[in-house]
Amino acid sequence: MIDVKQLVKIYDGKRVVDGVSFHVSEGEVFGMLGPNGAGKTTTMEMVEGLRSPDGGEILVGGFDGIKEQTKVKELIGIQLQSTALFDHLTVAEIIRLYGSFYKKMRPLSELLTAFNLEEKKKGLVKHLSGGQKQRLAIAIAVVHDPKVIFLDEPTTGLDPKARRDLWDIVLQLRDEGRTVFLSTHYMEEAEQLCDRVAIMDSGRVIALDSPAGLIRELASDSVIEFVPGREEASSTYQGLGGVKEVKISEDGSVTLLTADLQETLRKLIALADERGLMLTGLRTRTSTLEDVFLTRTGKRLTET
C-alpha cells in the first residue's frame, strides 16, 4: 500500500529524515516508534503530501506521492499531531465541510455513531473534550472512506480512558480492512496496536519488525532493574551469568537485560552480599520495545 525509498528531508542543513525506507502492506497497522524529534512526523507528512521531500521516492496505493498528490489525497485520510478545526462550527458542520472536499462521503449519522459523537452533533468544536476532539479528528480523517489512514501520535495528551477508547477505534479501523499508519512515542501503544513497528531515531529507521520479532532479536527476554546503594562500574554487572546488556542511568539506577533471569538474579544477590550493596527497588519484568530502543540507541524512549 505504501512504499517509501530513501526518503530525505533537510532543514537548515540538518538531515531530519535521513534515507528512510519502508513498506506498509494493505490492511496492516504499521507503527513508527521513536522519541520526539526522531523524524516520525516529518516522514509521515511527506508521505501524506504535506511536505515535499528533498530526496527519495514515495508510492501510495500505486500513485506517485510527489507528482500525483491529488489522487493520493483522495485515497488517504489524515489526522495531524494536533488537528486544528474551526472552533465555532459544530461537529456535524465540520464533518459535512470536510466531507465536501472529497468525491464521496460516508453518511453523517454513520460517522457520528462510529465515533460516539451523536450527543455532540450540535456542539461547537470549542466545547469538546480532548478525547472528543481527537475522535472528531479521526472521524473527518475517514469521512471519505479512505483505504489508508495516517494517525500522528493519536493518543498524546489523552487521559488513560480516552487512550483506551482510541485504541479500540484503531483496531476497528483495521477490522474494516483499512491500512493504518500511526506514529507514537509510547512503546506500549506500538506493542498493543501494531502489526509491525519501525523504530526511528535521529532521522533513521534503526529496526523494523513485528513487536514480538523485535523483542526476540534482543535475545534477552527479561529485564532486572534496581538501585544499588553505591556506584559500581558497569563491568561489575557485565560478568554476571546471562547478562547481555547493562545500562546505568544518571540517577544511578541499573538496568540489566538478561537471557537467564534466575541465574542472573542469583548472581546479583551474591554480588550484593559480597560487596555489601544495598539493592533497593529491585524488580524484574519481561522485555519490551522500550528495551529494544535502549539497546539500539543507548537512550531511553521516554524519560520517565
Binding site: 501524506e48 503530501g49 504535506l50 491529488t70 489525497k73 483522495e74 489524515i78 495531524l80 494536533s82 488537528t83 486544528a84 478545526l85 474551526f86 470536510y98 472536499f101 472529497y102 468525491k103
Partner: peptide, 13 residues
C-alpha cells in the same frame, strides 16, 4: 498559525 489550513491541505481541496 493554528494549522487549520494545513489540515485542509491534507485533503484534495
Amino acid at each position: 498559525e493554528r494549522g487549520i489550513l494545513r489540515r485542509m491541505q491534507g485533503t484534495p481541496l
